[in-house]
Amino acid sequence: MHPGPGATSLAADPPVFTLGVEEEFLLLDPRTGRNAPRAGQALAGLPEPVRGQSRPEFRRSMIEMVTPVSTGLAELRRELLRLRRSAARAAVAAGTDLVAIGATPVSEPDVDVSDEPRYRAMERQYGPVARDPSVCGCHVHVGVPDRETAVQVCNHLRPWLPVIQALAVNSPLYAGADTGHASWRSIQLERWPSLGPTPYFADAADYDRTVEALILSGVMLDPGMVYWYARPSANYPTVEVRVADVCPSVDDTVLLAGLVRALVATVCDDLRAGLRAPRLRGCLVRAAHWRAAHDGMAGLLIDLRSGRARPAWELVDDLVAAVTPALLRHDDLERIHTELDRVRHDGTGAARQRRILAAGGGTRDVLAVLAQETVRG
């Protein structure tokens, strides 16, 4: 799925950037809402062409679906819907529901990891942290020319990633109740030592030295455990943005992917113009991400350019204004405006879940709606 082959040099005219998406889903018992450890059965039930675009995940109640490389959002949407519907059919055949939600909503009686040597090593190293209930994210890959560019892009993305995170919040529930956080997934993941805001790096060599030092320290087992919110891919010439909860609908995912691609394209324009990334205080960056996870789009976000708290939708408007040339270049502006208008009206995934609860529904009502929304065209 990962974009990158044939990437254009930054010295050339502004390129059209390729993109792809990885989506993680929960398998839930349709009667109880609990996590169901049946990923093996569900993956085995996928048709052969789709099976090659699927992966087992850390938990046996999770599966991941991986899109092929796309150049347009309409193409990406078709692939997302195709993969989600195939996975949902296989999940139902395994006696479960496929649900796009960012964190375990009820409980996970079986917290054993998938039977993979790397996952077993992680369990031994991190103990109870590795046995937390499942969390599901959406990772957007955008093709860039080389690793040096990827590292510099990640530096420039830091002020904007809390805004992306706030738009994609989709995990307010834990143990069957509202946590008060729009993205409980984000809070839960803070216990992992190699996860969080991307540090600032001078260049790719600085990045590599830091990762090597973290592996030697035991904080990471290997380069694949760089779980920062944006990172150069370990295997492909892409920037991977991994700050978002898995999105409830394909249109939410398309919005996320379109904005991330436009951000990366805009940053590459800035790099071509010789602009340097701001050196932000790490404590403020962490505070901005906590605020995004807590409030989502329902309150204030920290504007990392000024250090001030501002209404969330004002920062979204600033983001769209900043990336409009890139959205126009990719013919995405109208679609992004349409999807943002929808989210303004209907709310984020977290807000939509809370609306069901406020109307008197229970957790099972929320999960039934989410299961339908996961595959809605």
Rank of each mutant, 00 (worst) to 15 (best):
V243S: 03
S134M: 15
A93F: 10
C136M: 03
E240H: 07
R118V: 12
R352H: 09
Q372H: 07
N35R: 01
G4V: 07
G4H: 02
A265T: 08
G4E: 03
A44V: 04
V144A: 01
E339N: 11
L280F: 12
M297I: 00
T67F: 09
I215Q: 15
G347W: 06
S70P: 04
D269V: 13
R354W: 12
T198D: 07
G362M: 04
L73Q: 03
W192R: 01
I101P: 03
E79L: 12
H345I: 11
V129M: 09
L271D: 05
E314A: 15
L315T: 07
G299M: 08
P232Q: 08
E190W: 15
N155P: 02
S194M: 06
V211Q: 12
V111H: 03
D251I: 00
Q53M: 13
W228I: 12
T71A: 09
A265R: 12
Q188S: 11
R38D: 03
D295I: 03
P278Y: 08
T179R: 14
M225L: 11
R308E: 15
A205Q: 09
V169P: 01
G137E: 00
I302Y: 04
N155E: 01
S171M: 07
A39M: 13
G296E: 05
Q53H: 14
T198E: 12
D341C: 08
R342M: 00
R276N: 14
V69Q: 02
H156I: 01
R60T: 05
T96W: 03
R354Y: 07
G4S: 05
